[in-house]
Design a protein around this nucleic acid. Structure first.
Lengths: 230, 230
DNA sequence: CAGTGGTCTAGACCACAAG
DNA sequence: TTGTGGTCTAGACCACTGG
């Protein structure tokens, strides 16, 4: 093995794990030994193994060594695209309608989660996104104008709040929750489905430092699916 | 800035992006320039920026340079744990019941997706997972004994197929789909919910090389949510 | 304590693609 | 053509932690 490339090393390591040459739970040779075997620098081995550990295939600990994961918690990466691009990537045309736009005191449960004072005034937006003029998803969003004063001047009729925020607010952190929910009366009327229909719902709460930027609930029309690979 | 660490560099780069010092879409200095500024080796800058690019914050292209992503498709990492651990991590007790276990010709639509001949015989398992003796999720799984002959000897009453497969089959690839579905009659009876209830459903198809290992549908009881962060 | 992975360096060559 | 990121090296020191 005179080939030295972190990719070829990764491939070979995967092969040895899949062939049970290195069974689950077993310690594999140290970086120094592997560097000797593959005739390459230790840094190359390190990169190969470090990346495999990031995907959950290996467990690494100083002194203890590197072992094949016993319970490989597989990690899947979800892409969170802008809604407009999500629609356009399906080859459909995106359009959005603002259904409501008002300043209201934020509901208590949101105030708590957003680390805001009770009855804080926020911008509340309800937006329907359409794909080829069919309802695609219903967006219910609260935006904290204390954190994002510019939002008050944003041209939200032309560019959806989703897109404006992604492009103008460099968030530092976000909490995401995926659930299935029965359509509320509100959902049902907006998406034009029977009340109680099973909807795929994504809720996100995003932050700049310790200041909440926006809390949003995205209710997708039936048939939506989120796909990924491991 | 005499500190040289890829982590401190990442923090500083994030700060500059969030503060708009480096606006979205703009080219940032080259690795050589940053190495000079931070007084460190180029490899250190490379690692810092490479990892940020993996998260979608930066776009890098040879010769074109590194720029702040214009439409940062945020990437969230989902952990796919073993069901037993998922339950136990909530502080609940896990138990499973095998509801059906039979060899059947696989349905046509699955045969196609699994790259198997029509009417191929597969092991079909229906399993109910319980958390503190309450229905937690209903697992409907097809296992390809051509790929996994050992499955026929597995003690599936003691250890769920989910867990046995994770620990014994080093898969190379998996397709995952997340959806919301109304409970079928079958789901409803098993999970003890009304038919039509909104259920969170994960479907997975996993592979060793080009051979399908298993196709599984996990229907979670109402109230389940999948959480992550970005 | 000592062995392992974690990180950094200074330098080098290369692959790619923008101009 | 040429500047950029992509990768590799040989060596070094360090941090952590198992025995």
């Amino acid at each position: 093995m005179s080939q030295a490339s972190y990719r070829t090393i990764q491939t070979e390591v995967r092969r040895r794990i899949q062939s049970r040459e290195w069974p689950a739970g077993q310690i594999i040779p140290s970086e120094v030994e592997l560097a000797r075997e593959f005739d390459c620098a230790r840094a190359t081995i390190n990169r190969a193994l470090r990346e495999l550990a990031q995907t959950g295939l290996l467990d690494r600990r100083r002194k203890a060594g590197t072992r094949v994961s016993l319970n490989p918690t597989r990690k899947a990466t979800l892409d969170i695209p802008i809604i407009r691009l999500e629609v356009e990537n399906r080859g459909q045309t995106h359009r959005h309608q603002i259904i409501a736009r008002e300043h209201l005191p934020v509901p208590d449960h949101l105030a708590a989660r957003m680390n805001a004072p009770r009855d804080a005034q926020m911008l509340h937006l309800k937006t329907l996104h359409l794909a080829d003029d069919q309802p695609f998803l219903f967006e219910d969003r609260w935006i904290n104008p204390t954190t994002i004063p510019d939002i008050l001047n944003a041209p939200l009729d032309d560019i959806s709040a989703n897109e404006w925020l992604v492009q103008n607010v460099p968030i530092s952190r976000g909490d995401i929750t995926l659930t299935a929910q029965p359509a509320t009366e509100n959902d049902a009327g907006t998406l034009d489905v029977p009340s109680g229909t099973a909807l795929f719902v994504i809720e996100r709460l995003t932050w700049i430092g310790d200041s909440a930027v926006t809390s949003v609930r995205l209710a997708y029309a039936p048939g939506y699916q989120l796909s990924t690979q491991i």
